[in-house]
Design a protein around this nucleic acid. Sequence first.
RNA 1: AGGCACGUAGCUCAGGGGGAGAGCGCUACCCUGACACGGUAGAAGUCGCGGGUUCAAAUCCCGCCGUGCCUACCA
Length: 902
Amino acid sequence: MSSDTVLKKGYEPQEVERRWYAYWEKEGLFAAKDDSSEKPFSIVIPPPNVTGVLHMGHAHNNTLQDILCRYRRMQGYNVLWMPGTDHAGIATQNVVEKGLAQEGMTRHSVGREEFIERVWQWRREYGGLIIKQLKRLGASCDWDRERFTMDEGLSRAVRTVFVRLYEEGLIYRGDYIINWCPRCQTALSDLEVSHEDHNGHLYYIRYPLEDGKGGVVVATTRPETMLGDTAVAVNPSDERHSSLHGKRVILPLMNRKIPVILEEYVDTKFGTGALKITPAHDPNDFEIGQRHHLETVTVIGGDGRMNAQAGPFKGQDRFECRERVLEALKAEGLLEKIEPYQHSVGHCYRCRTTVEPYLSKQWFVKVKPLAEEAIAAVKAGDTRIIPDIWTNTFFEWMNNIRDWCISRQIWWGHRIPAWTCQGCGKMIVAMEAPEACPDCKGTALIQETDVLDTWFSSALWPFSTMGWPDHTQTVKTFYPTSVLVTGFDILFFWVARMMMMGLHFMKEVPFRDVYIHALVRDAEGKKMSKSKGNVIDPLYVIDEFGTDAFRFTLAAFAAQGRDIKLSEDRIEGYRHFINKLWNAFRFSLMHLKDFDPHSMDGRGNHLSLADRWILSRLEGVIEAVTTAIEGYKFNEAASALYRFVWHEFCDWYLEIIKPVLYGEPDEDGTGPGKDRGPGSSPYEATRSVLWSVLNETVRLLHPLIPFVTEELWHKLPGTQGSVMKAPFPVASKDRRDGEAEATVDLLKGITSGIRNIRGEMNVPPARVVDVMVQSADQEVGQILEQYGDIVINLAKLASLKVTAPGERPPFCAASVFGDSTIFVSLKDIIDFEAEEARLDKEINKIDKELGGVGKKLGNQDFLSKAPEKVVEGVRAKQGRLAEKKKKLEAQLEAVRQVAGNG
RNA sequence: AGGCACGUAGCUCAGGGGGAGAGCGCUACCCUGACACGGUAGAAGUCGCGGGUUCAAAUCCCGCCGUGCCUACCA
């Protein structure tokens, strides 16, 4: 290829991607308009943690959002894709604390204010990393609007919501058993605890009766908690233990006398039917304790160590204490037996430490009333969950929801806007620090030291990012958002809570659609996570294969309802696709150098069969892609585009028009014919169709693969501005051409038949062959008369003759397509044995099919009960197969005769 | 413990009541003036197992086995 080539031989993504992203940003193409007559389309990004680096989940999630945004933008919508990051309370605090530890410090040694300053510093330094990475993905967010959950504006929204919910009685404070992480030293919500099966033991411990006459045996998995026992419960209906009613037992090791109480809750079938009660360290025991007014004895401290109430065990770690308690019990002969027992144990979702049920003063949101609103909204269809398989899961959870513990004993986060008067003890909840106590006028007010659960601020994200509580134009234009794209792993953490908060404060759902996509998993189907070390780095993939290939892969994988197991081979396959597209342009552009799109008028009269066919197919793919994206079926959009570009446009259209473009000489070899080559009308018509198809295909592909399409768009003559701003193609029935499609199908069938023989019979690729097609169908004859050149060209023929069925030409291999028999002349190279084998194979295949069809048609029930159309279809098929078989058998017979004679 | 998915070609996965599909891999032939990241042709699957519904089941229903996930206070 010479210097007149417009494109390089292979697509090189790196430089192209950098260039066009900078261009999009510079031109302000991602900007949304607060005030516009265009229809709005809005998405809020699921804010990645500031501590985050781009992982596969982000890549997948944001690719899908970007596809939707680019698609809508091209359709003329006023698109807002709102970006931002989450302060990620515990996660971020842990990161900064680790840094401190390396310098030999702790957060306590630097103090609260200094610590928080260090976190901000950390964020200024590293918090932008994930944003940069999203840009490499091609994300078309309106970056000028980037928000952070700890921004002043969002913090104000948080305080506003807190104060209002408190005033409405939907936030309360109290002493309850919560999940406590002894390492993070904070409360966790139920959702922040992940349960894992654990192979532990069930220990049977004897508690002697006070009166010395026997005792009772209880079973427990956590013997160390016995130090805080304040009762033993039995079921009142359990006759085995009726003698214990009203008695007291001695708590071993502690020598405390504790009562035997009666509780329906106790399961008579489990263990011994006697349950030790530790109100301070077990949520059920806590409730039982409240019912029976039991004392609570806390024996484990917030640091996971035994406290003073644990007597001789004071200062021991909870797990060490477990061993010591068991030893002591054994020594006293009170450990009856130990059974292996599998049960689930809660772990902190941030640091994996075993969570401890812990009695403490915490803040809660009363969620029932909020949940009811959310359930009603989904039932009413105000928000659709897609795929709707998740709707039930959503209801299930919302119906069984429990109050949400929102206070965290960490420093990084929104500090709870509550103050306690040191004078009279009054609690004041307010937007800003009050000057004095409204009751006693005292000025010694101390603010609550706890901060809010990170998810509290995320719950407000759809409207807090738009400027709420102010009445902004952004809110007016873009709330509710059009769609939320997210993984099911945060359906409860985030989606459900946004629904509740959005409905409560905006009186309107936060999003019309929730598209729940699959999770990207590793090769074994395990969730990718840093702690497991099984992550594939998206940036590596981007460097290796290019962003477009990566995005196309993610889209192709995004079938609803199935998880994604990413494989590099697949990405490589789609890189080849991008390259194929690139080269289709490279070829086409060689022939479009001086093309002027304004010269297209009147081409309609000169459209060739291939032109009409590809335009018709283009309609098909426009329709398919549009339907697919509208229904969030990204994989269907990807595969429709793939098939069209590769297997229709490249494989057939470009091959068919080559002679027209190159101006192949007429058969007499005197040079370009009047119907071919530069200057001829068909040539100009084909060029204009080629241009149109490329033009529309690039636009169709752009939402999925933005970079390469922008590059190609600019190489295409006559285009202006960014492809981002070009309209998304609209399907129109006028270009559908059933006749052209049928005709091309026939030509493809004949061509494939000949190619099959060439391949199977080992005809040298360079050798041209003579072909005769016999058909009783006059139309077939006409088509081949008119368009035979296409077959001659594609199947490398010396000549093509078309006749009515008649005398069988000798030394031929034959195949059948439709009602045509195709004879390929192989005079000196025919291998009769091979041909016999090939025909045999064909006939066998047909016999198999005929068997199935025959069975159906022999079935009286089928004939009478199946729809007529189906029956007719099967009959027609039988006819076709029988006819084909007859023809092949005749040919086989002929071959055998010739072979025998020769 | 309950719930939800999934089990289709060697691998990764689409599809989904009436003709088994794609990508990668594999085999053969081809450096044909867009592309060897390519072309043409080919081999390869009783669609997990067992029942049921139906004229018809890979597809719908039930059971089982296997895998994965989510939810759960039975010590």
